[in-house]
């Protein structure tokens, strides 16, 4: 019994590490193909939350904020110096042209909402 509980606990910890950190690369990504990508901001997540694009291409993201809690109010693209205020119930367009390949995070102010922009 004691062994079972300990093994279960450790397995749970391994599962947490795997799910939130190791496997997160496997998340479905939305590829930008010229047109705008609509991102829904609701219930603590951006949907879709992984966006792929190519360096030097202009990317248009339309954020639709459905969550009225102030946490969702801003979207910040770290390292790209882009931030935008999202009014509730509206679509806000964010246009950016990442110059360098890499992985950029975009989050709300408090980092509860998290998204990833992968630039190839």
């Amino acid at each position: 019994m004691s062994l079972l509980i300990n093994v279960t606990g450790l397995a749970l910890m391994a599962l947490i590490v795997w799910w939130f950190w190791l496997s997160s690369k496997g998340r479905p990504a939305k590829r930008a193909e010229g047109g705008a990508i609509d991102i829904v901001v609701s219930d603590g997540v951006y949907e879709p939350s992984v966006i792929e694009t190519n360096a030097g291409e202009t990317l248009t993201l339309r954020f639709e904020r459905r969550d009225p809690s102030p946490c969702a109010e801003q979207v910040i693209f770290h390292k790209l110096d882009v931030s935008e205020t999202l009014p509730v119930g509206e679509k806000t367009t964010v246009t950016l042209t990442p110059e360098n390949p890499g992985t950029y995070r975009f989050t709300c102010q408090m980092q509860m909402y998290q998204g990833t922009l992968i630039v190839h």
Binding site: S24, R27, G44, V45, S49
Partner: peptide, 13 residues
């Protein structure tokens, strides 16, 4: 709802 949605996205908040 928030927790479940975040979980599906491999996020936690």
């Amino acid at each position: 709802v928030g927790a479940w949605k975040a979980f599906r996205h491999h996020n936690a908040n």
